[in-house]
Nucleic acid binder design. Structure first.
Length: 742
DNA sequence: GCGGATCAC
DNA sequence: TATGGTGATCCGC
């Protein structure tokens, strides 16, 4: 069997390319499947998409082999044990069989295409597809004769049918007609379950009883009423449960119906020869596995191979398979279903342009944000999805309660036209420069190692500090840290501002990392053409209340923030340094601090009152996130002049930080976030320690070693340590520092 | 809880 | 030239 397949592969290679398009589908009878297969193969061959499909198929084959081996290892004793499990489970499932309800599944015929034909009757009888050259949503029956079908890219469809007419999708129109159909459904089951714009499940038990007519008669009537209301045809299936009703509605498509009586024998007969692929939930992969490993083709065989299924699949999956074999599924009252996620994704041509990618992310984030606002929803988990040019997909998920790395989701506060100042992006330059700089930097690290000679003298400058001066030693160490950072800055003008680093990341990811998740060895990751953002799961919120209030009132067991604050904390908050405290205190140190804001962005500069020269600055922005506002710190940098000063580096950093934090507090932020960039291990650890001393806590290490980190790096502009701090806690912690100076 | 995979429309 | 967008679920760590 295998051999004959592989020899035929050599002569007719298209036979080995398994697309979903050749799968039996209504209106596809009489199609020259061989030709379709060949055309699809010829059009796909050599493309990135094709290569990815081959990878996926190889993976599935491997999975099948693995499972075969496991099945072969099962002993007679194992099998008899699992057979007992099956017998017991089948009895239980059988006992749960529900034959008293009548379900109806309605499925509009070629819905989008039919609606388009209503608005343009000239399309009637012509092969037509709704969609674009890249993707087809629906094809009318004329087009299906050529093998054109949903989910097929348009350019392949055109090859199959040269006269094919393309009509762009128009969801407004489809929604309108969908609403019309639903008004009809309403009359038969006010609680009908809409499965999509063009499909619904109705529990018609009551209507049948009340009117004393059969399910088939209801189906006829409903279909003709739908036609009267919309001019569209639909097909229906009537059966004792939803799973079967769905299968039935497909049997006499289009414009037909099929009734499966509420009778156990009828159901079992129906199911016995039914190909498993007809069952909702069994797709291409599952079908291949079940056939490849166990030789299962029909639902009946699910029961025959029950012991194997129980042995090799999880209980829930095995349960599903067994109920399919029994023709069970979906009879429960439709419970209130609520949305569990909301997402936005876009496909674009491959690029490595970091600015462009960032813009895409921002756009998508905006769309998502808008959708969520429209729906009045809040998220708890954020997922970033990336699809590379080779169609590999990777997700990064993050709980927003723990971590706020979604810089891309900042929502401009009032003026959305505010742009980042151009200064921030003046380094669209060469990664070579950056890389070599790093190498040089690393190689020179050793001479920069600080230790205390004889536990007394600084190895770098000879300063003398006994070990008992813990704080002073730390500050001295920070001094050298800043010195080092400063030197680097002098090599390349701007170091600390992010965004410009994207190029490095893209480069590192694309050429540096070889990723081997699971058994497949992927080649290098190329550019990143697709990105998706989604948020899940959701907690809905009633209208009009600001997000902050929502989060508090919705999180179970979590009292509003203020209430959880301890008494001591409350007292401390009342004494936290005000902005004027901080400014006064800084002037006492001959420091001139300034805070500038442009829209959501801010910059804090520290100048020497004596020399009027800049000593350091911090930049960042206030971004709105679902749980409230967040103070996002891009950088805290200290200037060269700072190094020659007597006063502690830590002190100046603290002053600048304090203004930023106080500003964030005044803006209503509860959290501050930053990335301690890791360009070299030595200074990174010091940087982290510096921020730790200020009061930040590590939330995540972005190492760049996993595919997933790619997303982090895109968002944060580098590898390093993501750190967060509670703004109130910081201010409380610092209060003595500033109050006492007053 | 996270990330990958599958499925449906 | 070119293979989508949205939402759900399950499995394995």
């Amino acid at each position: 069997m295998e051999e004959s397949e592989s020899t035929s592969d050599n002569q007719r290679p298209w036979q080995s390319y398994h697309t979903v398009y050749t799968n039996a589908k209504a209106g596809m009878d009489g199609v020259d499947k061989e030709k379709v297969q060949r055309v699809v193969y010829e059009m796909s061959k050599g493309s990135k998409y094709f290569e990815n499909e081959e990878r996926k198929e190889a993976f599935i084959r491997q999975k099948i082999e693995h499972m075969r081996a496991r099945a072969a290892k099962l002993s007679a004793a194992d099998l008899s044990h699992y057979q007992k499990v099956v017998d017991k489970r089948v009895l239980e499932l059988e006992a749960s069989r529900e034959l008293s309800r009548i379900w109806l599944h309605v499925d509009m015929d070629a819905f989008y295409a039919a609606v388009e034909t209503l608005s343009d009757p000239s399309l009637k009888d012509k092969p037509m597809a709704v969609g674009s050259m890249s993707m087809i949503s629906t094809a009318n029956y004329e087009a299906r004769k050529f093998g054109v079908r949903a989910a097929m890219p348009g350019f392949i469809a055109r090859k199959l049918c040269l006269e094919l007419i393309f009509v762009p999708t128009d969801f407004k129109k489809y929604t309108h007609y969908s609403d019309l159909t639903r008004k009809v459904f309403q009359n038969y089951d006010p609680n009908f379950m809409a499965a999509s714009l063009d499909e619904a499940y109705l529990d018609i038990t009551e209507v049948c009883k009340e009117r004393g007519i059969t399910g088939g008669e209801i189906a006829e009537e409903l279909r003709s009423r739908v036609h009267e209301e919309t001019g569209l045809t639909c097909s229906a299936g009537v059966a004792p449960n939803r799973l079967l009703a769905k299968v039935c509605s497909d049997i006499n498509k289009p414009n037909g119906q099929f009734v499966l009586p509420n009778d156990r024998i009828a159901v079992m007969t129906f199911i016995s020869s039914l190909p498993i692929r007809k069952i909702g939930g069994i797709g291409k992969v599952t079908e291949n596995i079940l056939r490849g490993v166990f030789g299962i083709n029909t639902c009946e065989e699910m029961l025959q191979k029950g012991s194997f299924l129980c042995a090799l699949f999880s209980p829930s999956t095995a349960d599903f398979f067994l109920s399919v074999g029994l023709g069970l599924g979906g009879t429960d009252k439709p419970e209130a279903r609520f949305r569990k996620s909301i997402s936005s994704e876009r496909t674009f041509s491959a690029t490595q342009d970091a600015t462009l990618l960032h813009q895409k992310l921002a756009d998508i984030a905006e769309m998502l944000s808008a959708d969520m606002q429209k729906e009045g929803l809040l998220g708890r988990t954020l997922t970033l999805k990336l699809k590379t040019a080779s169609f590999e997909i990777t997700n990064v998920e993050v709980g927003t309660a723990k971590c706020y790395k979604e810089e891309v989701l900042w929502v401009p506060q009032e003026d959305s036209s505010v742009q980042r100042e151009p200064e921030d992006r003046n380094l669209d330059s060469n990664k070579e420069a950056s890389t070599s700089r790093n190498e040089e930097f690393i190689s020179s690290n050793q001479m920069e190692l600080l230790y205390w000679v004889d536990d007394y003298k600084c190895s770098l400058c000879g300063a003398e500090l006994p070990s008992s001066f813990v704080e002073e030693r730390q500050e001295h160490s920070d001094f050298h840290l800043a010195e080092r950072l400063q030197k680097e800055e002098s090599v390349s003008e701007i170091y600390a501002v992010d965004l410009t680093n994207y190029e490095i990341y893209c480069q590192d990811v694309s050429e540096g990392s070889c990723c081997e998740p699971k058994a497949i060895c992927y080649p290098r990751i190329p550019s990143v053409p697709v990105s998706q953002l989604s948020v899940s799961p959701l907690q809905s919120s009633s209208n009009g209340i600001p997000p902050k209030a929502h989060l508090n009132s919705l999180q179970k067991g979590t009292k509003p923030y203020k209430e959880t604050t301890s008494k001591e904390m409350k007292e401390a908050i009342s004494t936290i340094p005000s902005m004027s405290d901080i400014f006064a205190s800084s002037r006492a140190q001959n420091l001139d601090l300034q805070l500038q804001t442009v829209g959501p962005f801010f910059r804090i500069t520290a100048k020497s009152l004596e020399s009027n020269r800049e000593l350091g600055r911090a930049e960042g922005l206030i971004r709105v996130w679902f749980g409230g506002k967040i103070l996002h710190l891009d950088s805290i940098r200290l200037k060269r002049d700072t190094l020659s000063m007597e006063r502690s580096i830590f002190g100046i950093g603290l002053f600048i930080g304090a203004v930023a934090i106080r500003y964030g507090y005044d803006c209503g932020c509860r959290t501050a976030e930053l990335l301690a960039i890791n360009d070299s291990d030595l200074y990174h650890s010091k940087l982290v320690r510096f921020y730790q001393r200020i009061g930040f806590k590590t939330v995540y290490e972005v190492t760049g070693s996993t595919i997933g980190d790619m997303a982090h790096m895109l968002m944060w502009g580098g590898i390093g340590t993501r750190m967060d701090a509670s703004i109130e806690e910081l201010l409380v912690k610092w209060c003595r520092r500033f109050k006492s100076q007053d």
